[in-house]
Design a protein around this nucleic acid. Sequence first.
DNA 1: GATGAATGAGCGTTCATTCAT
DNA 2: AATGAATGAACGCTCATTCAT
Lengths: 206, 206, 206, 206
Amino acid sequence: MARNAEKDLQQREQRMNDILDAAIEVMAVKGVGSASMQHIAGAAGISIGNLYHYFKSKEEIFAEALRRGQTGYGEFVRSVADGPGDARAKLLTIAENWLALGNSWAHTILIHTARLSEASEELRRDVTGRFTVNLQPVAAIIAQGQAEGTAPEGDPLELAFYFTSLIQGLTLQRMPGSEVPVPMRASSVVDLFAGRREALDRRRDA
Amino acid sequence: MARNAEKDLQQREQRMNDILDAAIEVMAVKGVGSASMQHIAGAAGISIGNLYHYFKSKEEIFAEALRRGQTGYGEFVRSVADGPGDARAKLLTIAENWLALGNSWAHTILIHTARLSEASEELRRDVTGRFTVNLQPVAAIIAQGQAEGTAPEGDPLELAFYFTSLIQGLTLQRMPGSEVPVPMRASSVVDLFAGRREALDRRRDA
Amino acid sequence: MARNAEKDLQQREQRMNDILDAAIEVMAVKGVGSASMQHIAGAAGISIGNLYHYFKSKEEIFAEALRRGQTGYGEFVRSVADGPGDARAKLLTIAENWLALGNSWAHTILIHTARLSEASEELRRDVTGRFTVNLQPVAAIIAQGQAEGTAPEGDPLELAFYFTSLIQGLTLQRMPGSEVPVPMRASSVVDLFAGRREALDRRRDA
Amino acid sequence: MARNAEKDLQQREQRMNDILDAAIEVMAVKGVGSASMQHIAGAAGISIGNLYHYFKSKEEIFAEALRRGQTGYGEFVRSVADGPGDARAKLLTIAENWLALGNSWAHTILIHTARLSEASEELRRDVTGRFTVNLQPVAAIIAQGQAEGTAPEGDPLELAFYFTSLIQGLTLQRMPGSEVPVPMRASSVVDLFAGRREALDRRRDA
DNA sequence: GATGAATGAGCGTTCATTCAT
DNA sequence: AATGAATGAACGCTCATTCAT
């Protein structure tokens, strides 16, 4: 062992993260269809062959990027659900985080791409499974909102499904070159699922 | 002679429609990535060379299919908006039409694909433009709902944008192999934008 | 139908034969390992992409070349078995035909390659099946030789197996660059399976 | 120090043997085409980089494995030739040793592969040279058989060539997945080159 | 000696598009 | 109009070999 095993492992981990970031980056900048191994390798600053020392196929790269993105989102949304604040504030935090450009945008695109592509059955199942799991914290927030009198009636899980689908759907409308000339505001979206108090009041007064 | 020319033109039109149908069909059945010119030609029952007598590129085929699909949807949604009934019934008609599997499903996927792909700037602009135009009738319905007291407050166009994005987002969740195990009901979706009267009444009574 | 269908078919058939010949040629001249699609296409005078209009994979090319070669050999050996002459003369015809350089040599190499390569189970089964079938006429000749008193005792099929294996084994020794400096004479080989009359006589007299 | 150097040398020798064994093993188990440096290193339990401290190329590994195999076979066949027993018993020993599955089988495949591959001129010459040298002891046995009246007439070297080619040819027929459904018995093979006494007697009596 | 990351040419294959008939 | 042969660039991936540690 002339080598530092621990350092090697750290470097390997770092490289894998670089590659995943590069994959997301390429997709976001040059388009999903152009995310070839060639491009990813170039963006990561390594050779094509070396890519295969870290991931054994293109699919694995995307699967891992997806897993990372969905897991991160899952942790985020769970921490929001478990944190302090009323339902409306929580949903607003989630919506704003999602609609803000950056990593989350590219990750959402990745999810859509995985669904649209000829991805393996397994990958699609995994993505759908994590998507479903990540619905739970949102459902909990909706239930909280119903208890607080701000959320509409109905199955909280179903409403969480709609909330998430709406935000994902909106994300697609933000593709560069496809911007719809209509404002997209997190607060307005959240109003649908946890109405602003004054709005409800006014409506109630009517 | 004049009749022959006219007949030729009709035949040509018919062929083009057959090809577009075949393109949508192939995409829906075999997956977006598998919609090669070879497959489209096969599904349309003509040779690959002949395909190029009707459309000068693959992009043109998809652009035309998109145009046709969006135009059809636009006419449908305008006829609904201009027709009789309250806002809730109108939105329900639109949502049910969209969420029902069939042609509309494949067309929605096509729109998403166009946005995600390396499509030309022009194609993306056209798609976005027609999408925006098609928002108007929905906005009119929302405005009607606001007048009727069932729709939430806010810019009708913005709400129409959310309504459409939600339904498109939900469509993606119906990709074969990616079915999320949560019910997806048009009436529940519409409730968000044009609440059921009894629900509002109950809320008001509270 | 602006095209001559029959001529097209003939041309296609001709091209396929050209490609198979080119594949054999490349293998024989440049070595088995160098028989890449690139090389085959070059030898056949067409582009790589066009190769795939005639054969859907490299394996199919080799499978077809094998089938052609084994079928041709089978017909040849059957016609010899059914023809006139004593067993020794028949075996001599077969051995001489095989050991003479030319097409048959390259085909034999192909059979060996198929067995040594990572070829599909199906291909190996087919090759073995045809090999076994082609053993029958040789076995018939051996049986004839036994009736004539020139062939050794034993199961004719087993002896035919040895005869064929011997000749195939010898073929391998003729690879360019591997020539063993020992004479290889069809008549001597045949002597083992259908001894020359005078030799037997002399032995009997001893 | 001197002892350390000697021990180092022994260790190195041992490692080289391990690697050669691993190479043969991989080839026999996973197929010739799958014997990549990666696989060989794995089977030998060392890293791919370390492989190159013992052999400077893949070709050298195979050349050395061939040399070792052929040399071992040469020693074996020479010891048989120089040992006691009649020619028939000696040939039987050789044939049975070869046809029995195990190391010798894989070595034979290696020889064939070397001949079929793009191996260097030098390697092919070496293989052929050793092959030819190894023919001598067999020729001596054949000559002994001729003196004993069991072997057919003819040049002993030529007959040894046929005997060896036959057995090598038969080895090819034993590739897993290519088994020809015909018995393959060493005694029957040997009968062709050193007939069983009783068979000859019967023939003589006829 | 030992490691495995790194390279890059090459592989088999696909596919939108062109063109002679 | 209609055909399908022909092209060639690009794809995902493999692998023998080199090199810094």
